[in-house]
Amino acid sequence: MSAAVAPVREVAHKLALLRAALDQQDAGAIRLRGVDWFAWLTAGGSNAVLLALETGVAELLVTRAEACVLTDEIEAARLRAEEVPPGFSFHVAPWEQRAQGGALGDALGDDYVREAAANRPVLSDRPREGEAPLPPALRLHRLVLSAPEQERYRALGLAAAQAMTEAISQARPDWSELDLAAEGARALWRRGIEPALLLAAGERRLPLFRHPLPTSEAIGSRAMLVFCARRHGLYANLTRYVCFGPAPRQEQADLMAVEATGLAALKPGNSLSAAYHALAQAYRHVGREGAIREHHQGGITGYRAREIMATDASATELETGMAFAFNPGFEGIKIEDTFLLGQSGLENLTCDPAWPATEVQGRMRPLWLEAR
């Protein structure tokens, strides 16, 4: 299948799902505002300009007869040429309307949406006044990634892991945390990957904070770098460490044992909470019972860094095609990769063969890089 045909077929399948939801809910239109849903429906396109926002410079409006991009005249040409596959119409408003109205939806005018929906209910991923939320079944369907999505994810995961290796291998003890984060961002952008989140901490701050935004402080004898790396709307999540001296081998071994227990529970038919309870039991086994309360353990990933977080009450049933990013940890150390649940088990999407690793219960897991 050609590269041009593949997205069109993927989009057609997803439009059929949305239109089935319209019939089931007796609604007139579905309005998608989020960066996540825009990427999902357009087979990896992006409506993001300001990366800090969950919504972008365009929306998608789906009715039984049409799939339409709602945007302004600043963005329309670029979106047509670079982000949106064939088959979508465009409703383009003057940019002044957005400047006057503020929000994109206000700028484009609710009258257009109401007319397209034939005055029937409008469903939305981020509903505003008078709109209804998307049905839960549609949200759950997004978690099960199709074959083309999985291929995009594999390419992203490898590229993000290679960017991590490139960045952290250059670190030196006199680098600041900001230097390390900047090198990570550079390595990601060079590969066309958005650094949606970059955390970096050195020797002093590692044991103090679980979400250490980088500072001007020198990293010293060890450092952590964390990526939530986005491309085509999908997130590759991974954490790596570098040390200038011996690595904490016992802590690594204990943490890998905890993680292995949680990963072993990621099987079709299990609930997400089963993995959480497996992790809780593993923490107790290594004498770290309280660690599970110090930070979230991760969960299902995909078009959000965490689509659904694992908790003791997460009833979501696991299915083949879902992706996961768990990040169990102790004080000053954690472990994280992005995995795809395939027909033959878990596939590590963020594995760079060049990174030092050890086998844990049949799976290669990353060690700390011991720099010289």
Rank of each mutant, 00 (worst) to 15 (best):
G102F: 08
D125H: 05
P127H: 06
G130S: 12
A116V: 04
D106I: 06
L123F: 14
E129N: 05
P133A: 01
G102W: 06
V113R: 03
G101F: 00
L138C: 07
P86T: 02
L138A: 10
G105A: 10
A118K: 09
L134V: 02
H91T: 02
R114G: 07
G102Y: 13
Y112Q: 05
P135Q: 09
L123Q: 09
G87D: 14
L123Y: 11
G130K: 09
G130T: 12
R98G: 00
V113W: 01
D111W: 13
P86W: 02
Q97S: 04
Q97M: 11
G105F: 02
N119Y: 15
F88C: 04
G101N: 08
N119C: 13
P121V: 15
G101M: 10
L123T: 11
R114M: 13
G87C: 04
G109A: 10
E131H: 07
L104E: 07
D110P: 02
G102K: 09
Q100Y: 07
P135K: 04
A116D: 06
E131G: 10
Q100A: 14
A137S: 08
A117R: 00
D111T: 15
A99P: 03
L138Q: 11
Q97H: 05
S124F: 10
P136Q: 02
P94H: 06
R126Y: 04
P136N: 03
R120H: 12
G109T: 05
V92C: 02
A107F: 05
P135D: 06
P135C: 10
R114H: 12
A132C: 03
E129D: 13
V113H: 00
G102V: 10
P121D: 10
D106P: 00
P94F: 11
P86V: 01
A107C: 05
D111I: 09
A116L: 09
N119E: 11
P127C: 13
L134K: 02
G130Y: 09
P133W: 01
A132L: 15
A132T: 12
A93Y: 14
L108C: 08
Q100C: 03
G87W: 07
A117G: 08
L104F: 06
W95F: 14
N119L: 10
A117D: 07
G101C: 13
R98A: 12
R126N: 07
D125K: 03
E131C: 02
H91M: 00
Y112T: 03
G101V: 01
L108D: 00
E131S: 08
F88P: 00
Q97N: 13
A103K: 08
E115H: 14
R98V: 12
Q100T: 10
A93F: 14
E129T: 10
A117K: 01
P86A: 03
A137R: 11
A118L: 08
P133M: 01
D111M: 04
F90R: 12
R98T: 08
R98K: 15
P121Y: 12
H91K: 03
G130M: 15
R120I: 00
V113E: 01
S124A: 15
D106C: 07
E115G: 05
G102H: 06
F90Y: 15
F90C: 09
L134S: 03
E96G: 07
E131T: 05
R98D: 01
G130H: 13
A107Y: 01
E96I: 13
R98N: 03
P135R: 13
A116R: 15
L104V: 07
W95T: 01
A118M: 14
G87M: 04
L138M: 06
L138D: 09
P121R: 10
